[in-house]
């Protein structure tokens, strides 16, 4: 085996993850290969340094508030869903009623009616187009699935 073939095993050796046979074979190789011995020494120093890097734990009060923050999020999640659905339904119903009234109003000129309807139609087309694009990219997002 070339040195390249032993590289990955150096990690297992450092971390105590090799079986006895792998250790015996790797140690035999190390005895005859100065380059791998040198690389192993470098990695040994790196592991020692990296093990000393310890992230700071947040203060106790952050942990005490952790659940309440999450609980609020869970509760608000349901609230936002209900609010969103109701708001969309109300906006659609109100919007349709307003447009119908506007179109049926004899005091408004035909040109204005056509202009407003064309603008609204354009808005709907733009909205549908953006929504379709978002759905297209979302359906191809490989990180979207959370199930295992």
């Amino acid at each position: 085996m070339t040195c390249e073939g032993w590289k990955d095993l150096l990690m297992g050796y450092l971390d105590g993850e090799l079986d006895d046979e792998q250790v015996r074979r790797l140690e035999a190789h190390l005895q005859s290969c100065e380059a791998c011995r040198k690389e192993l020494d470098g990695f040994r120093k790196l592991v020692a340094i990296a093990d000393e890097v310890v992230p700071q734990e947040p203060e106790d009060k952050i942990w005490q508030q952790y659940w309440s923050g999450l609980y609020n999020r869970m509760e608000r999640g349901i609230g936002w869903i209900l609010f969103g659905v109701a708001a969309i339904a109300l906006l659609l119903a109100g919007g349709f009623a307003a447009i119908r009234e506007f179109i049926q109003d004899p005091t408004v000129s035909l040109l204005l009616k056509v202009g407003v309807v064309a603008m609204l139609t354009g808005l709907v087309i733009l909205f549908v187009s953006v929504l379709r694009e978002r759905l297209f990219f979302w359906s191809r997002d490989r990180y979207k699935d959370v199930r295992r």
Partner: peptide, 17 residues
């Protein structure tokens, strides 16, 4: 698998080094 972990760890540590 464990082999991939070892390999990825090797490349990660080498890059870190």
């Amino acid at each position: 698998n464990k082999g991939t972990v070892m390999s990825r760890l090797y490349h990660a540590r080498r890059q870190l080094k």
